[in-house]
Simulated scan of single mutants.
Amino acid sequence: MFKKITITSGERGLLFRKGSYVKMLQPGTYRLKTFQEETVTVMSTAEPFFVPEMDLNLFLQDEELLGQLAVVQVQDYEYVLHYADDRFAELLTAGKYAFWNVLKEHKFVTVDVREPEIVPGVEPTVLPKTAGFWYMQEVASYERGVLYYNNVLQRELEPGKYYFWKGPVTAAVRTIDLRQQQLDLIGQEIMTEDKITLRLNFVCQYRITDPMVALEFKDFEDQIYILLQLMLREYVGTLKLDDLLRRKQEIADFILTRLSEKSGEYGVRFLSAGVKDIVLPGEIKDILNTVLLAEKKAQANLIMRREETASTRSLLNTAKLMDENVTLYRLKELEFLEKISENIGNISLSGGSNLLEQLNALVSSKENG
């Protein structure tokens, strides 16, 4: 008994006899010997070479078949980018693959994921088609990045986007902000030389200049905080309260100078520092307010005494001038009469004389006196 089968130009056949592979069949018509249990698996040359439940290596012993296949072996630590007719087709993971090299030309680009960074040689158009096999890390324009492979330092990264393959080596990027930053010390309780405990609010601005040095510190900002705190305690502890209140700017200058001496050790540049507030205990504040009130009262009394003295001296000078000058004396009288007239609502006249005569009499009596 025979069975007829036809293989077209876009196909190839795999002849099996009693379940064992015999050879590849080119396009054409064949008669199968059914009594010998011959079967044919017809495969499209446009599809990958794959026979279910059979190992690929069984077929690669056939030299004629092997000549029409493109075979690629992918190791556990590799990805392979598969191109068909110079167009990206797929990403291959660990395993062995075969493709018909009849209608299309197949090329393969092997990537060793033990070096996880995706190099510029990989076309950007490939990445959207391989989602899930890579991840991206970004370094902003105001940052610097530091690259680690499995927690081992590799190099510093400039601003930009970086892509890494998922694999046995984990890539991580730590970023350092290079913008000006501010550190606030709020409510620092410090004792002065005269044993007065106060609370100090201090501020410091800085900018990281060497990310590699800064990354050597665990909890970098906390380290700067403690350094600043110790310097403040050291300096304020040598001052009495009155000196501290008078020399606030000197404190800032001293701290900034000391911090600048440490710049190289921390990889930063300290830009400015200053005392924001000095908060005194309630009883000390009451005492200072009492002292201030007494000082202001004394100043006010002193000013009043000076004004009274100046006023008396002015009156004395005026009196001397009036004694020496009759015309001035008369003008002064007229000035007083004018002021009196401004404040009078009604004028009552006695006798038969008129107002002008009475005023003349009043002025004449002053002259005679």
Rank of each mutant, 00 (worst) to 15 (best):
A214R: 07
L215P: 05
L215V: 05
E216V: 02
F217S: 00
F217H: 00
K218A: 05
K218H: 12
K218S: 06
D219G: 04
F220P: 13
F220Q: 02
F220Y: 10
E221G: 05
E221I: 09
D222T: 11
D222G: 09
D222S: 13
D222W: 08
D222R: 14
Q223F: 01
I224W: 01
Y225R: 02
I226K: 02
L227T: 02
L227M: 05
L227Y: 04
L227P: 00
L227C: 03
L228T: 09
Q229Y: 07
L230K: 13
L230M: 10
L230I: 08
L230E: 06
E234Q: 08
E234K: 13
Y235M: 00
V236S: 05
V236P: 09
G237S: 15
T238K: 15
L239K: 14
L241H: 15
D242R: 12
D242F: 13
D242K: 15
D242L: 15
D243H: 11
D243N: 11
D243M: 14
L244M: 12
L244G: 06
L245E: 06
L245H: 11
R247I: 03
K248L: 05
E250Y: 08
I251C: 06
I251Q: 00
A252W: 12
A252M: 07
A252Y: 14
A252E: 07
F254Q: 12
F254H: 09
I255S: 10
L256H: 04
T257F: 09
L259W: 04
L259T: 04
S260P: 02
S260N: 07
S260M: 04
E261R: 09
E261L: 11
K262Y: 00
K262D: 01
K262Q: 15
S263M: 00
S263H: 12
S263V: 04
S263N: 12
S263D: 11
G264K: 12
G264M: 02
E265T: 09
E265H: 05
V268F: 04
V268L: 13
R269T: 10
R269N: 07
R269Q: 12
R269D: 03
F270D: 00
L271T: 07
S272T: 06
A273M: 01
A273V: 03
A273T: 01
K276A: 02
D277T: 03
D277E: 10
D277K: 11
I278C: 06
I278M: 08
V279N: 10
L280S: 07
P281V: 01
G282T: 07
G282D: 09
E283Y: 13
E283M: 09
E283H: 02
I284R: 01
D286T: 11
I287F: 15
I287P: 07
I287N: 10
L288H: 07
L288Q: 12
N289E: 14
N289H: 13
T290I: 13
T290H: 15
T290E: 14
V291R: 15
L292H: 14
L292T: 12
